[in-house]
Computed example of a mutant assay.
Amino acid sequence: MAHESMPLFPLHQVLLPGAAMDLRVFERRYLDLVRDCGRSGGGFGICLILEGNEAGAPATPAAYGTEARIEDFDTGNDGLLTLRVRGHRRFHAIRTRVRDNGLVMADVEWLRADGEDVLRPEHALLGTLLQTMMEKTGTDLNGLPARIFEQAGWVGWRLAQILPITPEQRVSILQEDDVHARLQRLLEWID
Rank of each mutant, 00 (worst) to 15 (best):
F26I: 07
R29H: 07
R158G: 01
P164R: 12
I165P: 02
R89K: 14
G52Q: 04
H92D: 15
T96I: 07
L48W: 01
E116K: 03
P10V: 00
A2Y: 11
L130I: 12
E109S: 13
I46S: 02
G87S: 11
G127P: 01
L187E: 09
R24C: 06
E150G: 05
L81M: 13
Q151F: 01
L174T: 03
R90A: 08
P58G: 07
P61V: 06
T139N: 11
V155G: 00
L174N: 04
A106W: 00
D72K: 13
A20T: 05
G18A: 05
L81N: 09
T139Y: 14
L31G: 09
R182G: 00
M21T: 08
D107C: 03
L187Q: 12
W189T: 12
R86Y: 07
L111M: 14
E116M: 06
D178Y: 01
D191M: 10
E150P: 00
N53M: 15
L125M: 08
L15I: 09
R147D: 15
G153V: 00
Q151G: 01
A124Y: 01
E188D: 12
E168F: 11
L174R: 00
D74T: 08
T82R: 13
R147W: 13
R158A: 04
L8C: 04
P61C: 08
A106C: 09
G43E: 11
G43M: 10
L8I: 04
G76L: 14
N101G: 11
I70S: 05
R97I: 03
L163E: 05
M21N: 07
H123Q: 08
M1K: 10
G18W: 04
A59D: 02
Y64E: 01
D114R: 03
P58E: 03
G102M: 11
E176M: 10
Q13M: 08
L8H: 00
E109Q: 15
L33W: 00
R95T: 12
V171W: 11
T166K: 10
P17G: 06
C47W: 04
E168S: 10
L80P: 04
A55Y: 04
L159E: 00
I173T: 03
T75F: 14
A59Q: 03
R120E: 08
L81K: 10
N142S: 10
I190K: 11
A93N: 08
E176V: 05
A181F: 08
Y64G: 00
D177C: 12
Q184W: 06
A93I: 07
D117K: 00
V34G: 04
G52N: 07
L11V: 06
L174H: 03
R84Q: 11
P10C: 01
G127S: 09
Q131Y: 05
H123I: 04
T166H: 09
R112S: 11
R158Y: 04
A181N: 10
M1S: 15
R120N: 02
I148A: 14
L16K: 03
M6E: 04
A124P: 07
Q13W: 09
L50M: 06
E122D: 15
Q151A: 03
G153H: 00
A20I: 04
G143K: 10
P121M: 02
L83G: 05
I94T: 13
D177L: 15
P10Q: 01
R90G: 06
D72I: 05
